[in-house]
Nucleic acid binder design. Structure first.
Length: 163
DNA sequence: GCCAACGTTGGC
DNA sequence: GCCAACGTTGGC
């Protein structure tokens, strides 16, 4: 059995709704509500223990607040079946769900938010969907080099999370 | 709050 | 299948 290489991702969240501190508080969260096919397809590639940069969007200081890991492999997003939910999808059925989610678990809070402005200055981040203009992806892949560069720029030792 | 960029919808 | 209209995202 081959061990799959570590995968890295970036997850966007609006801190006014659910920030990294909220993730730390609850300890584990179902990452529901992704309703974009490209983001969903990335989500479905996630595997347990993949590492995620937790990004704060639509806020005064957009940037990465910490690191989370995938705590459960992709499974159907339950909100798609809930008529009361804003994420309800009438075209979804339990037999054929359109939308998936994973669980995420906090790993490491950065001492301070690593600003988007700083990410833009890193050579590794020049060609990322995140730093591209008009980007709207809420789940996107991160290269190992980007992940390491982000940790370093945040003042962290990559060995703290790459166990 | 503004607005550019982008995805989705629906008429044809 | 085209494409204009519309809604949403997200930095500023």
């Amino acid at each position: 059995m081959a061990l799959s290489p570590p995968q890295f991702w970036l997850l966007k969240s609006e801190p006014d709704v659910f920030g990294f501190d909220d993730l730390v508080r609850v300890g584990r969260e179902a990452w529901s509500g992704v309703r974009n096919y490209q983001a969903r397809n990335f989500l479905r590639q996630m595997r347990v223990n993949d590492l995620c940069l937790f990004y704060h969007s639509s806020t005064a200081l957009p940037g990465v607040a910490g690191v989370a890991r995938v705590g459960r492999e992709p499974y159907p997003d339950d909100l798609q079946f809930d008529p009361e939910s804003a994420y309800f999808d009438p075209k979804s059925t339990p037999q054929n769900p359109r939308w998936s989610m994973v669980d995420v678990v906090p790993v490491l809070a950065f001492p301070a938010v690593l600003p988007l402005d700083t990410l833009r200055t890193l050579p590794e981040w020049q060609d990322s969907p995140l730093t591209r203009r008009g980007n709207r992806l809420s789940v996107l892949p991160v290269t190992p080099e980007q992940f390491r560069a982000a940790l370093k720029a945040a003042g962290m030792d990559p060995r703290e999370v790459e166990l």
